[in-house]
Structures are given as C-alpha cells and as structure tokens.
C-alpha cells in the first residue's frame, strides 16, 4: 500500500529526513518511535502533503501512485488521513459544516452519493459514540475551546467518519491523561481492520500498551535505525533512546 524509498527532506536550511525506507501493507499497524527532533512529525506531515518541506531525494508510492505529486486534498480523497498532534482551532467555521464538506468531498471521489442532512447526522452520531464525544461539540467552531482530550477525540472521530485506508496518528497520546488515552486508543482499536493500515507515531511506549503494533521502527536523526516487533518498544522503554543512539554510533 505504501512504499517509502530513501526519502530525504529538508525544511528551511536543515536536513530532517536522511533516507527513510518503510513499507506498509494493508491491515498492518506500524509504530514509529523516536526522540524529539528525530523527524517523526516531519514524516507524518510530508505524507499528508504539508507545504514547507523540500523533498531532496527518494520517493513515496501509495497504491501505485506517486504520492508526493498529489495535493493534500487529493491524498485525503485517496484515503490518507492524518490525526494531528496539534489539531487546529478554526474560529467561525462550524464543525458540522466542515465535517459535511469533508465527508461529501471524500464520498464524491469514491463514487458515493452525497449524504443528505438526516443521513449525515445519523452517521455522525454513530461515529461519535466510538470516542464518547459529546454532540454539543458539533455546534461549536472547529476545535475552538476544546480541551486537549476533546481535540484528540475529535481527530479519531473524524478518522472514523472519513474511513481512510491509511491513517497516520501523529503523537495522538501527547497531552492525554490516562482516561482520555484509553478512550482515544479504544477508538483507534475499533477502527483497526484488514482493509486499513496505520502508522502510529509516538514518543512513548505507553500508547503501544493500548494500540499494539505489528511492527516498531525507531527513528533517529532522520533515519530508521532499528525495526522489530512490539518487543522493541518495550526494550526501548526500559533502556531509553540513548541506548540505541549509542548502538548506531558504535556500528
């Protein structure tokens, strides 16, 4: 589904990604871990199509297509979803209106009919249950005045609504207390399926207690320095990132 080959990228004057290779197949859950500044969020942003990065080498093939040539909205319509680390507050734009516009643009692309107001509301209500979101939030402007937990739940709710093929979760655990983490992780687990792949980006192993990955990759200084299964995450938790960085330097 997704093949990242030798991806190099820079922002402003600094090189952030220095040769990423990663293959994700349908149905798989990959965790990408790494210390701050290792390039985790940059990778997520580049996959979703954020401007401000220059890809200097390598390629990303998504379902046989050159992903890097696609606009962010095309990627979304083709089934890529990014759950933001810092969901953006957008004053004055109603959450309901936004969700409807997003859902209908994705549905239209997939050859499905646009939903009328009744069907839309029914679908929204159903998906909100997944992350125990309160319906009142729909009447508010996008993320405005939402608590940290509400914002993250809103991300997973949107993911449920848009039904992506590849979901990228960028530090979805950051800033969540344990109760909120359980709810959010429960929502994500509810969306795991054979038809969907996920890339779960996180700094801490904690999230992976709830969302158990098939593969774990450790990113350091813009490269994947180690890959393994869920045991690798536990090992990292125990020994810290310094352990790996030491290994890389000595090798």
């Amino acid at each position: 589904m997704l093949i990242i080959k030798n991806l190099h990228a820079r922002a402003a004057d600094s090189e952030i990604l220095r040769g990423i290779d990663l293959t994700v197949k349908t149905g798989e859950v990959h965790a990408v871990m790494g210390p701050n500044g290792s390039g985790k969020s940059t990778l997520a942003h580049i996959l979703a199509g954020r401007e401000g990065y220059e890809v200097t080498a390598g390629e990303v093939i998504y379902e046989g297509k050159d992903l890097l040539q696609m606009a962010p909205e095309e990627r979304a319509r083709e089934g890529i979803f990014l759950a933001f680390q810092y969901p953006v507050e957008i004053p004055g734009v109603s959450t309901t209106y936004f969700l409807k516009a997003a859902l209908n643009s994705v549905r239209k692309h997939r050859g499905l009919a646009e939903l009328d107001a009744m069907d839309f509301l029914a679908l929204v209500k159903e998906k909100m249950k997944l992350v125990e979101m309160e319906q009142g939030l729909l009447n508010r402007p996008i993320n405005e005045g939402f608590s940290g937990g509400e914002k993250k739940r809103n991300e997973i709710f949107q993911m449920a609504l848009l039904d992506p093929k590849l979901a990228i979760l960028d530090e979805t655990d950051s800033g969540l207390d344990i109760d909120a983490l359980r709810i959010v992780a429960g929502g994500v687990n509810g969306l795991r399926s054979k038809e969907r792949a996920m890339i779960v980006i996180t700094h801490y192993q904690r999230l992976l207690d709830y969302i158990v990955p098939d593969y774990v990759h450790v990113l350091s200084d813009g490269r994947i320095v180690k890959s393994g299964d869920k045991q690798l995450a536990l090992e990292l938790e125990e020994r810290g990132y310094a352990w790996l960085e030491g290994q890389v330097q000595s090798s």
Partner: peptide, 14 residues
C-alpha cells in the same frame, strides 16, 4: 492561517 488551511485540505476539502 496556513495551519488552518492545511487542516481543512487534509480532510479532503479542495
């Protein structure tokens, strides 16, 4: 707001 614009586009809005 470029962050807001990207957020909306990342949800499939042209």
């Amino acid at each position: 707001d470029q962050d807001a614009l990207f957020y909306l586009r990342s949800r499939g809005i042209e």
